[in-house]
Each structure stands twice: as C-alpha cells, then as structure tokens.
C-alpha cells in the first residue's frame, strides 16, 4: 500500500479511500443505502476514526495550519470518549467550575483510561492558567 502523503492525498475520501474506514472497519465504498437498509452498518458507525482525524491533522500541518492540526489531534483522541463525558469535560473547563485537583484528576483519567495525552496536556495547561487568573472553583 502506498504510504500516506499529507501534502498530496487530500481529499482523503476521493484520493485515498483505501485508508478510510468507519470505526467498525467498513470501507467508504460499503456505505450504501442498501447496506443501511439491510442493517449491516452498525448504529453510530457513520463517523470518523481517530486514525482518519490523525491523517486530517497531518494534512492541516502540511498546509501550514499547525493550530488546526493540534485541534484535530485532540479530536482524534476524543473519538474514544463517550458523548456525556465530552460535555462534562466542557463544563469542567468553564470558568470557576473546577478546582486544580478536579482538573488534574480529569487529565489523569483521560491520559490513563482513554490514552488522550494531548487533551490531558491541554487541560493541565488550562489548570495552570486558571490558577494564575483566579478562574478555579
């Protein structure tokens, strides 16, 4: 298989469909109305994988959008996080919702349970800034 080239393989959907699957492993070409009606596409399977978002991050980086790349790298990690937890993390990051301990516990949990290393680092960075600016609970 030809290696992924982030500066040439965009759009992935048309240029590198061989690299794209759903979370359950279905290729793009298998996502048909017939498959949908026949029930072969698992519920909630029509979304990007961490790998796909990682490749999109590489595309953004190769095109000079480092901040967008970091966002997509965090997004790739968040694919493994349940919906409710996502909203809880958002709430925890709002002003004066969390103590330093709360945010550290959250970061540790993300790192250990979900391998969300860059999200954890982002939360720790926020915790330091919040402490300096009086935005902790």
């Amino acid at each position: 298989m030809r290696p992924f080239d982030p500066s040439a393989d965009y759009p992935l959907g048309s240029e590198r469909p061989d690299l794209i699957t759903t979370p359950s492993g279905m290729p793009l070409g298998a996502l048909t109305v017939d498959a949908l009606v026949g029930g072969t596409i698992p519920q909630g399977d029509l979304r990007a994988t961490a790998e796909t978002l990682g490749m999109q991050a590489a595309v953004a980086r190769a095109n000079g959008r480092a901040d967008l790349a970091e966002n997509l790298e965090r997004a790739a990690e968040l694919t493994a996080i349940p919906d409710e937890m996502i909203l809880d993390i958002y709430t925890a990051l709002r002003p004066r919702r969390s103590s330093a301990h709360d945010l550290e516990a959250l970061a540790t949990r993300l790192e250990h349970d979900h391998l969300a290393v860059s999200v954890a680092a982002f939360i720790r960075e926020a915790a330091v800034a919040y402490a300096d600016r009086g935005l902790l609970a």
Binding site: R74, A75, I81, I89, Y90, L93, R94, F122
Partner: peptide
C-alpha cells in the same frame, strides 16, 4: 467560557 473551554468544544465537534 475561557479560550480553553471553547477550544475544547471545537475539538469535541471535530471528533
């Protein structure tokens, strides 16, 4: 909000 909470939300949507 803070810049971090909004940035996190952006990542959440992207995810």
């Amino acid at each position: 909000d803070t810049p971090w909470s909004k940035a996190f939300l952006a990542s959440a949507y992207a995810s």
